[in-house]
Design a protein around this nucleic acid. Structure first.
Lengths: 260, 260
DNA sequence: GTGCGCACTTGTCTCATAGTTGTATGCTTT
DNA sequence: AAAGCATACAACTATGAGACAAGTGCGCAC
């Protein structure tokens, strides 16, 4: 019988896997560099890399050239998938999605939209999203007139802004709150006035970080909820959280810092 | 080997975020100049700027050429907060947080809790969270009797479960929805019955992925909202998603074709 | 008051350095 | 032939140091 030769990089992979599982390296944090690991395990960089690559294929870690290796989140697949449209998410759940445009107009930007997008004139599109024939969301999207002037109503009805705009999107910030349904919400969504609704504002930015799109979504509470995966309690780079709104527009806080 | 590599500008960003939350820089509304910060942190202007730019994308600060950096006033692009406990987030914003336990009992697990935790007997703790004296959340936490039997009421009142339980937490799944305030919510939170509330269920698991803690949070809608960062260029970010609820398990009659 | 200049600020470059991963090559050991 | 070692180099990143342009606020001479 032949003695089983232990494969060094497999050993290292096992040990790293154990350390990761023990929470030794927290999510979002950097691992020691390949050189350090090489010294720690008394193995060459090639071997360390083989172990790390193995962990990468398992989705445990990831790396960026010139930056380092870091702990990845378990369910990460495509960064792109996270910035999906609502419709895409619904299709993923097997629902037939459909839009009905109720409003398509170039208008002066509302103050808060103007503050974010930094333009005076915007394309404002209102629509109702239907899932399997039932209305489930009332949506208002604003985009700068400069970007929206090429768009037609039928385009907007059939494709998402993400597909239509010649912009490379970089990310979005989504805020989720609750409110009572107004008369318009009630009519379009088919719920009683005053019933609870989920409201969501998504500010989408391009790769440079400049906001280019604002969307307001109103969902009937009884049909929708959001799920967020929170990876670790460590204050690393962890996103997602709760925010307290200002109690009221207090008179002493009205700024003039930007009043010029 | 255990040594943790850090990114300087991230550290600085964290520190600045903390100072901003503590109101340290709000007086006069102008931050120290980049040169001053550079000296204070012993970092170059490049690094300081990177930290400030990060805070800008979070909507915390803004700048004007020739003028300086100042605390952003109407933050439409919300700050992304670290996860951790809700109390920790409030402290980061400079709010005094306090809990009032209203219920502390070992009880048979409610069906849905039992289904998730897989135990029959649980410790059920109900409390109200106060921020600066104002109630802002009604919380119910369940944890397995096996883990909760060591805990006292005063412990639970002063420390979070995350600190108290001898468990390595691995992550959490949070679902966010809206509802109308019930009589109990209304009383404890000081809002009218039927007014919209944000409801949130957080299932926290240990590093092995076993659920060990369930928390139900009810927030008055006018004071709270959630923010989620989607697909930024940074690695390791939590995905956010929308989920359609099943057509109500309640005796409510809504069912038509549930062809799904 | 008006205009000018000065000090200070941010915005944006360039150049440089150290440290990191990505990749390729040759050699040794089993 | 495969695993591992040693080495070199390219590409990328974070950071530092410095220079210059452009914008802002303020005081001063007129």
């Amino acid at each position: 019988m032949r003695q089983v030769r232990t494969i060094r990089y497999k050993e290292i992979a096992v040990d790293l896997r154990r350390r990761l599982g023990a929470g030794e390296y927290t999510a979002g944090r950097l691992l020691p560099s390949e050189a350090e690991l090489s010294a720690a395990y008394s193995a060459s960089r090639v071997t360390i890399r083989k172990a790390l690559e193995e962990l990468r294929t398992e989705g445990l870690v990831d790396s960026r050239q010139g930056f380092g290796w870091f702990v990845a989140e378990a369910p990460v697949r495509q960064p792109l998938a996270r910035l999906a449209t609502i419709e895409a998410q619904l299709e993923a759940e097997g629902l037939r999605s459909e839009r009905r445009i109720t409003d398509f107009a170039f208008v002066p930007a509302p103050p808060e939209v103007r503050a974010v997008l930094g333009v005076d004139e915007v394309l404002s599109v209102r629509r109702v999203n239907l899932a399997d024939g039932e209305p489930f969301a009332r949506v208002t999207v604003w985009c700068p007139e400069r970007l929206g002037r090429e768009l037609s109503l039928s385009q907007v009805e059939e494709q998402s802004f993400y597909d239509l705009l010649p912009v490379r999107f970089g990310g979005a910030t989504q805020t989720i709150g609750a409110d009572a349904a107004g008369p318009l919400d009630a009519e379009l969504l088919g719920v009683p006035v005053g019933s609870p609704v989920l409201v969501c504002r998504r500010v989408t930015a391009d790769v440079a970080g400049t906001p280019v799109l604002i969307g307001d979504y109103v969902f009937p509470a009884h049909r929708t909820e959001f799920t967020v995966e929170l990876a670790s309690t460590e204050p690393s780079i962890a996103p997602g959280g709760l925010r307290l709104l200002e109690p009221a527009p207090s008179p002493d806080q009205r700024g003039e810092s930007a009043s010029r």
